[in-house]
Amino acid sequence: MRASRVLTFARYEIRRAVARKKVLALVALTVLISIAPYYALYATHTSLITPPLRPYLWILGVFLPQAFFLQFTALLIAAGSMSEEYEQGTAEVLLSKPVSRQEYFFGKYLGGYALVVGIVVLDVVLSISSATFVFGPQQQLGIEPMILLAQVFAALVFYSFAFMVGELMRRSSLSYILSASVFFTSEVVGVFLNILYTLTGTNIYKVANYYLPTSPVDSLPLLLAEPKFPSSVQLVFRFAATPVEPSIGISALLIAVYFISAVLIALTYFSRMDVAKRVT
């Protein structure tokens, strides 16, 4: 596998994804979610934001999109990555050149993922800037690179899953629907399992919740960040989510298992199957 060809396809994939209006719309929405809460909180003069909380409000913008918008954006970018090339008949032209299927596969995978990372970084920059602008200088920013790494690592789960579904289905509408269904189902089932555990105290509900794909995704950045902040700031984290997983290690392991499985399945399928002619 040649790095130059992988890079060519990665750049191509970024360009292709950015050309899609729905991806741009979601990026715009993510930006809005990163900055709007600060101005809303400022405008409403809520008593929730006490002076000791103000230097830590950057956390709000960083974590608010974590549970939904970042995952959904990752999913949307990945679901069409392979499938749209089949639908538009462009895969056969790209693959009729002297490039290996692995170069094409990993180039597209990494290109789309680089875009997801870019969106996470954009979210972080806008959150910190908005928090600083509205509520003054922010503290504990030194931990942000670690949170960023955790967020982009966690995004691999639904990014890889949607990428895999796109390759297996080879129909973008089906891959969007199926990937989004799994994502929403996991979120909803997670909430129900949590309620059942709270009501009954039965451990099986708690353990089952660990293995839902959304659980480690939501938990890892929170588990890393929460201990580094004063207890008075925990309220801000609750705006985002409550960690489900018992430890950072289990969260990271589950994320790795989910995304590596999805990548391997997609790569095996793509390497062995025929390159479909244009399908509509």
């Binding site: 292709r16 538009q88 462009t90 056969e92 002297p98």
Partner: peptide, 18 residues
């Protein structure tokens, strides 16, 4: 694939280019 296609050009029927 890579070496076989090194000096080969292909234009498909009803091309759908990017």
């Amino acid at each position: 694939h890579v070496r076989a296609l090194e000096r080969v050009g292909y234009s498909p029927e009803l091309p759908n280019l990017q």
